[in-house]
Amino acid sequence: MHVLITGGAGFLGTMLTQELLDQTDAGRLDVGGRGGITAITSLDMAPSRVDDARVRSVVGDLNDPGDLADALTGGADVIVHLAAVLSGGSEQDFDLADRVNIDGTRALLDAARRQSAETGAAARFVFTSSLAVFGGDVPGTVPEHWAAQPESTYGAHKAIGELLVNEYGRKGFVDARICRLPTISVRPGRPNSAASSFASGIIREPLNGEVAPLPVPQDTRLWLSSPRVVVRNLVRAIAIDGAVLDESAKGPWRVMNLPGITVTVAEMLTALEAVAGPEARALVRDEPDAAVAAIVTSWPGAFDVERLRGLGFEADGSVEDMVRQYRDDFCA
């Protein structure tokens, strides 16, 4: 069972790679009745950070036919498409985002389609999307089939990608699984180009004794998930049978709003203080940024995920749990 992960050298790709290997070694993973993972290829602009004989790195560009062919050597049973220019970066460089987020997704889908034609078997294709596909006047809790109305370049690109992946799935070229990720907190490392980067920064930086700017109002609602839970849900998306997804959704619409918890920024700061004390809370400074706030406040803060919870997808227990998880994993 061979898995290709685009963006495999990034934070999420690294965690997913390790989780797939760990679940395979523990005998907990079975994909399509074929057991666990025997090989993982990471396609990224940097080598994979996972040191395991089953992991191969292709350092290259998703839009380069040679690099893509190299990554798909021997065929891929599962393709997980994580690579993207994120929300803030997409607003700043439209052309780069267009090339990576749309052209790259289309190139990967076409390669999967060619593989399917040659082998007669459609690869499971997991596409990571975003809450940024939503905008406009959304209800307090968004139902599963609420229409996408993006208000950012990144959101528009992800909405386009969702339609492409679902259509390739409908035609049988791939076995599609589209996962709209919650905002992930707490990410380790330094801030990235995502508009939601502050949602990790206001916890991560204070826990490391650093000042953190807060660009949005404290009453902003966020749909959050910890890195561990997001990764386990991605593994679930890989493993679950497509027929089960279609039966539960009453049709071949493979878009899933992954579970999260609804938290205001103020509640995140309260959790930070509960875990690390008032000194840590005092390191978060209100620094309004209208551009960031315009993007983030267009995203919904709660979703109806009852169907997915019934299919084995999970959510965190509390925001305090998420703060402690980062502290225990990365601040020891």
Rank of each mutant, 00 (worst) to 15 (best):
M1P: 00
G7L: 11
L12N: 10
Q18G: 12
L20P: 02
T24P: 08
D25E: 15
I37Y: 00
S42Y: 01
M45L: 15
P47W: 15
A53Q: 05
R54I: 00
V55W: 00
G66M: 05
G75S: 00
L82Q: 07
G89D: 09
D93M: 05
F94N: 04
L96F: 08
G104N: 02
A112P: 02
A112C: 04
Q115W: 01
A117S: 03
T119L: 02
F125A: 01
L131K: 14
V138C: 04
E162I: 01
E162D: 01
L164Q: 01
G169D: 03
F173G: 01
C179E: 05
T183H: 15
V186Y: 11
G189H: 10
R190T: 12
R190F: 15
R190P: 09
P191V: 07
I202Y: 09
I203K: 07
I203R: 06
E205D: 15
N208M: 11
N208K: 07
G209V: 13
A212V: 09
P217R: 05
T220L: 10
S225H: 10
V230I: 12
V231I: 14
N233V: 10
A237W: 04
G242C: 04
E247D: 06
E247I: 13
P259V: 09
I261H: 14
V263W: 13
T264F: 10
V265I: 08
A266S: 08
L269W: 12
A271L: 09
A271P: 05
A271H: 04
V275K: 04
V284L: 08
D289N: 14
A293L: 10
A302W: 13
R307C: 02
G310S: 02
Q325N: 10
Q325A: 13
